[in-house]
C-alpha cells in the first residue's frame, strides 16, 4: 500500500508522518508515534477511550483516517498539562476521585477540556451530555461529573 506524507501539529509540535491510506488517527498516534496515552477500547466509535481534540473539537480518533489530518492541530492527553502544570480538569478529576482503572480517563479529560473551551460554565445536564460518548465502567460517573464542575470553578477563579 502506498504511503502518504502528512504534516500536522500534535500538542504544539510539528510532526511529519508517512502513513498508509487506511491507517486511522488512533493507530498513527499509538503505533507510529508511541503516543499511547490515547486508548483503544473498541476501534468502532463506541466508547470514547480514543478521544482527542482535532482543531478544537473532541473526536473519536479511531473513526478518522490519519490522512484526513493533514494540516490539523491535534491535542492528545499527553498535551493537556503545560510545563508540568496540570490542566484544571486533570487536577479536579484527581480531587474528586474520578480515576479508578484510568483507561477511560484520557478520553474523558479531553472531552471535558473541549466542553470547558466552548462552554466555561456548563450545567449538570450539559456535562452529562458532553460525556455521554465516553464510557467508564469503574466510577459510576458521579465523581467525574463533579470534577468537571470543579474544573469550571477553578478555571473561573484563575481567570479573575
Amino acid at each position: 500500500m502506498s504511503l502518504h506524507r502528512i504534516n500536522l501539529k500534535i500538542n504544539g509540535v510539528a510532526e511529519q508522518v508517512d502513513v498508509a491510506s487506511n491507517t486511522t488517527l488512533l493507530q498513527m498516534l499509538r503505533d507510529r508515534l508511541a503516543l499511547t496515552g490515547t486508548k483503544n477500547g473498541c476501534a468502532a466509535g463506541e466508547c470514547g477511550a480514543c478521544t482527542v481534540m482535532l482543531n478544537g473539537e473532541p473526536i473519536n480518533s479511531c473513526m478518522i483516517l490519519a490522512v484526513e489530518c493533514e494540516g490539523a492541530d491535534l491535542v492528545t492527553i499527553e498535551g493537556l498539562a503545560k510545563d508540568g502544570q496540570l490542566d484544571v480538569v486533570q487536577q479536579a478529576i484527581i480531587d474528586q476521585g474520578g480515576v479508578q482503572c484510568g483507561f477511560c480517563t484520557p478520553g474523558i479529560l479531553i472531552s471535558a477540556r473541549a466542553l470547558l473551551n466552548r462552554n466555561p460554565d456548563p450545567t449538570d445536564y450539559e456535562i452529562r451530555d458532553a460525556l455521554v460518548g465516553n464510557l467508564c465502567r469503574c466510577t459510576g460517573y458521579v465523581p467525574i461529573i463533579a470534577a468537571v464542575k470543579q474544573a469550571a470553578q477553578m478555571q473561573k477563579q484563575a481567570a479573575q
Binding site: 499509538r30 508511541a34 503516543l35 499511547t36 496515552g37 490515547t38 486508548k39 483503544n40 492528545t76 492527553i77 499527553e78 493537556l80 498539562a81 496540570l86 486533570q90 478529576i93 484527581i94 476521585g97 480515576v99 484510568g102 483507561f103 480517563t105 484520557p106 479529560l109
Partner: peptide, 21 residues
C-alpha cells in the same frame, strides 16, 4: 490520601498492556 497512581493516569503516562513497545 491521594491515589498513588493518580498523576500518571491523568497524564496518559500510565502503562497498560497494549502500550508496551
Amino acid at each position: 490520601v491521594q491515589r498513588i497512581d493518580a498523576l500518571e493516569k491523568v497524564t496518559g503516562s500510565a502503562v497498560f498492556g497494549d502500550d508496551i513497545q
